[in-house]
Simulated assay, not measured.
Amino acid sequence: MAKKKVAALEGAKMTEQGLLYNGFIIEPVVEKCDGCERAVAFEDAKYCPSYAQPDRKWKNGVCNFATHVRAEVSKDGEVKINPLKASKRAARGR
């Protein structure tokens, strides 16, 4: 019986260095990525086709590709908003 290939990692090959996909070596996802819809199983481990080094995405806070994490609420009860996006919304009148 042939294995069903995952469309997100189409053409990926396992090498000695790791998983080779589109010319990049992709590292397996980290613990914080559990529950993310982007994580795709390939052979024995799960990989993120959006970012080659998932541990670096989590180094400075929350990964911006994470589908299982919501925006943080500050101590004042307000949601953190990117200042650039806030200024654009204000200019549009939202």
Rank of each mutant, 00 (worst) to 15 (best):
I26T: 05
C36H: 09
K13L: 07
E16D: 09
K32A: 15
I26D: 01
L20N: 04
G11F: 04
L20Y: 05
Y21C: 07
E31M: 09
K3S: 06
V29W: 02
M14G: 01
K3C: 02
P28Y: 12
F24A: 10
G23N: 09
A7Y: 08
M14K: 10
Y21Q: 09
K4A: 12
C33D: 10
K13T: 11
E31Q: 14
A7Q: 14
I26P: 05
M14T: 08
L9P: 00
L9F: 10
V29E: 07
G23Y: 04
E10M: 05
A12D: 05
G23T: 03
E27T: 13
I26Y: 12
K32L: 14
A7N: 11
G23Q: 06
F24K: 14
G23F: 02
Q17F: 07
K32F: 09
I26N: 02
V30C: 13
C36S: 14
A12C: 11
N22Q: 15
C33L: 14
L19E: 01
V29L: 08
P28T: 09
G23M: 05
K32T: 14
K3E: 04
A7R: 13
G18C: 02
C33S: 15
E16L: 06
V6F: 00
V30E: 09
K3G: 04
K5W: 00
A12G: 06
E31W: 06
I25L: 09
I25A: 04
I25V: 13
K3A: 08
G35W: 11
P28M: 09
F24S: 11
E31G: 10
E16P: 00
V29N: 05
L9Q: 03
K4F: 08
E31P: 04
A7W: 09
F24E: 14
A12Q: 03
D34F: 15
C36E: 13
F24H: 12
E31R: 13
M14A: 09
G35P: 11
C33V: 12
G35Q: 13
K5T: 01
T15Y: 06
G11T: 04
E27L: 15
N22L: 13
C36W: 11
K4T: 10
C36Q: 14
E10D: 13
M14L: 15
F24R: 12
K13F: 03
G18F: 01
G11D: 10
E27F: 14
N22E: 15
G35R: 10
M14I: 09
E16G: 02
F24V: 07
T15I: 05
K13D: 03
L19F: 06
I26Q: 06
K32S: 15
K5D: 08
I25R: 01
V6C: 06
A8E: 12
D34Q: 15
V29D: 03
V29Q: 01
E16T: 10
G23A: 01
Q17W: 01
L9C: 03
K32M: 14
A12R: 02
L20Q: 08
K3L: 03
N22Y: 10
K5M: 05
C33G: 10
L19H: 00
N22W: 08
E27R: 12
V6A: 10
K32V: 13
K4S: 10
G11Y: 06
